[in-house]
Structures are given as structure tokens and as C-alpha cells.
């Protein structure tokens, strides 16, 4: 995906110089070779710093929430769907945006890269087929498909659903046979096994809220865990409170989550909280045929209903 960088720079410079936007939100190289970081380019000169690669794991839609200025933004397929939800939910107006779409072939899993490296990584190159990891005294090539971030393996929309300009030609969408295999696996367990599975899953959570902060959907002025009237969820790392937090956060994202993977990528404890959100995605797709953020005139699944929605679970 490295090839997109030049085009992103070109578009950004153009829209900044023409005054179409006040800022372009994109990525620049990070201090670590395997992490690119969000960057706000406000001038043509700054736009020179923009990059795009398989290390752009943050969801930039997080940075446009409630902005009042005109913004250029670089989005992959999943992010663009968050942008749609943002527009629907009044977080930003379409007119404020100049959307630079990236037809995405997937991000590299941070942990997979680190496992392969034989020292500090200085750069990661991506030609859509092969990832080349370079560092002090080593260079490794690996098939991109072997190091894809887990959410990218089941991506249903690699091309942006909404954009003003694309940074490259559209790519073929994935054909996924077993989209929710991970969720299905859990569902096959007994109730007690599931309970233990999630207990284990969350055992390391310190409630640092990195997942929440990385998520463009979590924009409430006060999160429910911080509500004080009534304070019904404790703020400690009590296991019920931790579960309540992850559980209700996922419920709040039901019908809205695009499985961009920013939450897991941001987690310092490597907690797989997408097990929660993916369950809601599965249900919304299977029960209501509703994928988050696909159309500007369709609100999230829980803000809608159909008269013949599934009714079997009700006596």
C-alpha cells in the first residue's frame, strides 16, 4: 500500500493550497518502524510528511468528531464506514469533509511483525503481496496474508464507501467463507466454558480505556462507566465491573462497529475485545441484514426496526 503515499501527498497539497480544507488528517512515519502515527498537515509543506502503509492502525475518524473546520481525511474502507456513521450521528457534516479514500489491502499485525523481527524494526515495506521487515542487520520477507491484522482477514469492505478522491484504483473485495468463525467457536462452547473464556479474556484488563479512546464510536461526553447519578458500575478492576464495561461498550457499538480493529491495536495488554463487538456485528448482519455505515441514509441497526424482525426469542 506504500504506493498510495505519493497520491495522498499530491491530493493533500492540492486541497490545502486551494483552501478546500484547513487541515488534512492522515498518517506520518512513527518513531518506531512498525507504527505510523496520526498526523495533521496544515500546509503544503507539512503534507510532505504524509504517508500511508500497513502500519496505519489508528482510526482517524476519531479525530474529526465535532470539528468545526474543513477537514481532509485519509480513510480505508472500514474507516470510511465510520465516517458515514459519524455523518449520520451529527459528528461531522459531509460538506466539511474532503475524503481521500484508500483502497485497502489490509494492515499488518503489530505482534506478528515483532515476532518475526530479529531486532529493532526500522522499516516495514508493503507491496500488497509481500511485507519486508528491515532492521539492524536483518531483512525478512513474508507473505502479507500471513501477517494480516485479524480484522483485515474478514474485511467486507476494503474500498471506501464514501470519498471525494481515491489514492489508487479500487481493489478487489475479499471473498470470505467463514466470516464469524471466531464467534461461532465461542458460541459452540457450554455456558460455563463461555463464562470462563471471557473471564480469562479480560483477566489482564486494567481499564486504561485505550480501546475506548481509540474508537471513533466512543464519543459520549461522559461514558456510562463514569456516570455518577446513579453510579451503577464501579470504577475498579473488579471482574464484574470490567465485564460490564466491555459488555456495554460493545452493546453501545452494536450496529455501528465496522470492525476496524483500532481497539485491539491500541490495547497495551493485548486483550481481544473484538470478541464482544464481533458478536454484535454478527447478530446485526444475520438478524437484520444490517452492516454498519454502508449508506448515508440508514441509521444504525438499533435505531431502526422492521415489522418482521426476528421474534422467536420472545414468548
Amino acid at each position: 500500500m506504500d504506493a498510495y503515499t505519493d497520491k495522498i501527498k499530491e491530493i493533500s497539497k492540492k486541497i490545502l493550497s486551494e483552501g478546500k480544507v484547513d487541515v488534512v488528517i492522515g498518517f506520518r512515519k512513527g518513531t518506531l518502524g512498525y507504527m505510523s502515527e496520526p498526523y495533521m498537515a496544515k500546509s503544503e509543506k507539512e503534507a510532505e510528511n504524509l504517508v500511508f502503509d500497513c502500519n496505519c492502525r489508528m482510526n482517524l475518524v476519531n479525530y474529526v468528531t465535532n470539528r468545526k473546520d474543513k477537514v481532509g481525511i485519509v480513510v480505508k474502507g472500514c474507516d470510511s464506514r465510520n465516517l458515514v456513521t459519524h455523518i449520520i450521528e451529527n459528528k461531522i457534516k459531509r460538506e466539511q469533509l474532503y475524503i481521500i479514500g484508500v483502497p485497502c489491502t489490509g494492515l499488518a499485525d503489530k505482534k506478528a511483525l515483532l515476532d518475526l523481527a530479529e531486532g529493532e524494526i526500522t522499516s516495514v515495506e508493503d507491496d500488497n503481496e509481500t511485507i519486508t521487515i528491515k532492521g539492524d542487520g536483518f531483512e525478512k520477507k513474508v507473505a502479507k496474508s500471513d501477517v494480516l491484522q485479524s480484522n483485515c482477514k474478514t474485511c467486507i469492505k476494503r474500498n471506501p464507501v464514501i470519498f471525494d478522491e481515491l489514492a489508487g484504483p479500487e481493489v478487489a473485495e475479499l471473498e470470505i467463507s467463514d466470516r464469524f468463525a471466531d464467534v461461532d467457536e465461542v458460541e459452540k462452547m457450554s455456558a460455563d466454558e463461555r463464562w470462563n473464556f471471557f473471564g480469562e479474556l479480560l483477566s489482564e484488563c486494567t481499564r486504561c480505556y485505550a480501546c475506548r479512546n481509540a474508537c471513533p464510536l466512543c464519543y459520549c461526553p461522559t461514558c456510562f462507566v463514569d456516570e455518577s447519578r446513579p453510579q451503577w458500575v464501579g470504577k475498579s478492576d473488579n471482574e464484574t465491573d470490567v465485564l460490564t464495561y466491555h459488555f456495554l461498550r460493545a452493546f453501545h457499538d452494536a450496529g455501528r462497529c465496522t470492525d476496524c480493529g483500532a481497539c485491539e491495536a491500541a490495547c497495551p495488554m493485548d486483550i481481544k475485545m473484538r470478541y464482544f463487538t464481533r458478536k454484535t456485528i454478527k447478530d446485526c448482519v444475520e438478524k437484520y441484514g444490517s452492516e454498519a455505515g454502508m449508506e448515508l441514509d440508514k441509521r444504525p441497526a438499533l435505531d431502526q426496526y422492521k415489522i418482521n424482525d426476528p421474534n422467536e426469542f420472545i414468548k
Partner: peptide
């Protein structure tokens, strides 16, 4: 209003048009 995020879910679900932004 201090708690409101302005997402419009209330506007969407109300059959009587009572909420607005």
C-alpha cells in the same frame, strides 16, 4: 445537555417528533 453527544438516536426512535437537535 452536558451529557448529550448529539447522535440523534432519540430523534430517530421517537414516533412523535418530540426530540430534536
Amino acid at each position: 445537555p452536558a451529557f448529550c453527544s448529539g447522535c440523534g438516536a432519540c430523534v430517530a426512535v421517537c414516533p412523535y417528533n418530540a426530540p430534536s437537535i
